[in-house]
Design a protein around this nucleic acid. Structure first.
Lengths: 121, 121
DNA sequence: ATAATTGTTCGTACTTTTGCGAACTACGAA
DNA sequence: TTCGTAGTTCGCAAAAGTACGAACAATTAT
């Protein structure tokens, strides 16, 4: 009885957990959001606060507004920016809380290396 | 004469340059390479230097070796790691020069924000 | 010579990303 | 009401990304 369940259980017991950690997933999520020059440019622009409006962001970029809108959506979904309507315009901003969180993630990530000796170099 | 050329010239003269900067492209390239949990895990592993061998890297990940090989290739192409054959194994390592370069890129990028007031927050 | 070990490359399947124009929504002005 | 402004969403196409198993190459062990 419970044959398949037992097998599953035994496998679980012996198997090393190879799932990605939450931290690694989160860092990858941030990195992925930053993984396009348009989105880096947007973040740079917002972080330097030349303006927060869609039109001005669009004006910085060599792509159609539909595409800009998509990139903004992705950055928003990654948590790096936020947007609010300020009729008739839309105001986008850095999400400071998550920005700081991302900064810390990257800082910590790169710090690993400097703590230890190198393998090949 | 040279009608189309003149038009082009005038357009070039008046148009704001919206091309992505080299720096933004490079940062995006690094970020993109880091934009997958498997690749973050690999970098973490190599940076902490538990081992440099393919087999051990593969052993850390919940994916097939063919896929691991592909991720390693991408990291290599982005410049973040390097590999050399150490028969019969393959030894991968952080590319320290570019690692430091990437670290600096991210550091500089995130530093923009802390220098200035926020738009919405 | 044959087999085992260690990775890479190939072929395939499927998903996601990037990009655009056109259509649409929401609002204020004429 | 009709128009213009400011963005978003939709539908599509092309390209890139993710993943796998099978086949392959290169070496070492039997």
């Amino acid at each position: 009885m419970r044959t398949t369940n037992n097998i599953k259980f035994v496998k679980m017991e012996n198997a090393r957990n190879k799932d990605y950690t939450i931290d690694n997933e989160q860092l990858a999520r941030f990195a992925k959001a930053m993984g396009h020059p348009a989105r880096i440019t947007i973040l740079n622009f917002l972080a330097s606060m030349d303006s927060c409006y869609f039109g001005d962001i669009h004006n910085e970029l060599p792509i159609a507004k539909a595409t800009v809108s998509q990139h903004l959506k992705e950055l928003k979904e990654a948590g790096l920016i936020q947007g609010e309507i300020e009729t008739p315009k839309v105001k986008y901003c850095i999400n400071v809380e998550n920005w700081n969180k991302a900064q810390l993630y990257f800082e910590t990530f790169f710090a690993i290396k400097t703590e230890k000796a190198s393998c090949c170099n």
